[in-house]
Design a protein around this nucleic acid. Structure first.
Length: 106
RNA sequence: CGAUGGCAGAUGAUCGCUGGUGAACCGCAAGGUUCGCUGGAGGAAAGUCCGAACACCAUACGGCAGCAUGCCGCGUAAAAUACGCGGGCGCCGCGGUUGAAAAAUUGCGGUGACGGAGAGUGUCACAGAAAAGACACCGCCGGUUCUUUGAGAAAAGUGCAGGCAAGGGUGAAAAGGCGAGGUAAGAGCUCACCGCUCGCGAAGCAAUUCGCGAGGCACGAAAAACCCCAUGCGGUGCAAGACAAAACAGAGGAAGGGCAGCCGGCCCGCUAAAGAUCCUCGGGUAUAGUCGCAUCACGAUGCUGUAGCGGCGGUCUCUGACCGCCGAGACUUCAUCGGGCAUUCUGCGAAAGCUGGAUGAGAUAAAUGAUCAUCCCGGCUGAGAAAUAAGCCGGACAGAAUUCGGCUUAUCGCCAUCGAAAA
RNA sequence: GCGGGCAUAGCUUAAUGGUAAAGUUCCAGCCUUCCAAGCUGGCCAUGCGGGUUCGAUUCCCGUUGCCCGCU
């Protein structure tokens, strides 16, 4: 994803806010499999903390990638609490937000 | 406890990420899918505090300004004030020796942004008489006026004009220290010792040290105040920069000129570039592509085969242009082998070093992860005589972004070597 | 990644190396029937750690946090 695409999703998409993350999703017709981008800003902490949060989020999305619907652009922004959250709590929140944004295939 | 050096949990399984590469399949092609093989964070990758490589720039040469560095020698990629090693000197701590003490001397350890305050300007609050060419508060000293006491000698007090800086007191700091002579009292006024400055000689590459002689105290602190002296520095930084290329309209060359504007922090000059003219042509602008860039400006071989060249043939608007075939083919990419470089291991060697082996991360919203098992290290609990079984907790700081060297800072613990004195 | 700047009271700003100032906020009192305004008084600070100095907000070094510019 490019910077312009991130901005596009953040402005036009429907956000779902949680304790540790903000999920932005935008339906794009005919784009094929859904694409997802992760945002881990400097407010989370040092480079080690940012990498750890991003890797955990990527692993969570990878495990549930077959449940995702197609034709979506998704931006996942980590919030400050994500730095101290465990893997399991992040996974719970991801499933809750994804259900609310109705990007899961049933 | 301190100093120095080293390590930075290990192995396996399953599912993934990213670079390279091979095969098969799909596709006209660009490319895609599947299955393999193989590489994949650090001692600080960090802070960006110095320096170098590399790249670009219309001022890079000279000067001013500015910045940096500052005892001496040697070494490091050239050099250096950086860094390392060694030395000198100062300061601090501890011990030994001499001594009544003060102190001196010596040994060990630590530490120092360690040129100049004997070029100049400025600063030194409060306190204190005075804070930098000593203008003296309390004092000390002799002379003298007056008063008092006294038979007198004289003593005390007071005023005046002087001499002195020993003692007291203030302060962070008070004008060489200490002893003797000297004196009305004093004072480097004189002398010895110590310190300081200068000169000469010796040792040392040098910083500096030692010895001799002279001066006669003139020389407070602070330059991490301005400044002076010496030395060095053009600026910008891989977001440097190069190439390909859509939107869109420009770009290149030649002559001429030394003038406007733009343009280094400033000034002067030199060189180069550039606009108005002419000529020619697809020019080359993006936060997205490729390279820079992953050990190498190395050598050899091999694969692919491009620009340009030569030959033959054909076509046309025919001294030429275009197309096709053939020939030899720079340059570049990739692969293999060899070599160099860096890191590391083993062996030999007193050391320098030598033989042999292994390894060489690389993206661009940015890879190195998740789960599980076994073992390892540390701590706690603990049946038990003990070794130990078992359980629980913990394994830090921290993540490459052009590369390299140094510095600084963060860091759970473990290992090795050394340690004078005190505690 | 590279380059540059800032840090003083709860907030906004001062301060030739010598007791850290002012406005505003807050608290108390006065004034007013009450509130506001006004007047008086009080509380509160040099980001942190070292160094130079007799003495640092100031000078120097390190460190932490924040801000800005460059594709």
């Amino acid at each position: 994803m490019r910077t312009s695409e991130f901005d596009h999703v953040k402005e036009r998409g429907h956000p779902a806010r949680g304790k540790c993350m903000v999920l932005g999703a935008l339906a794009v017709q005919g784009s094929g499999a859904s694409r997802i981008g992760f945002v881990t800003g400097r407010r989370l902490g040092s480079a080690v903390v940012r990498n750890r949060v991003r890797r955990r989020l990527r692993e969570i999305v990878r495990k549930h990638q077959h449940d995702l619907r197609e034709d979506f652009w998704i931006v996942l922004i980590a919030r400050r609490d994500a730095a101290d959250a465990s893997y399991l709590s992040l996974e719970d929140e991801w499933l809750r937000l994804a259900k609310r944004a109705s990007i899961l295939a049933l």
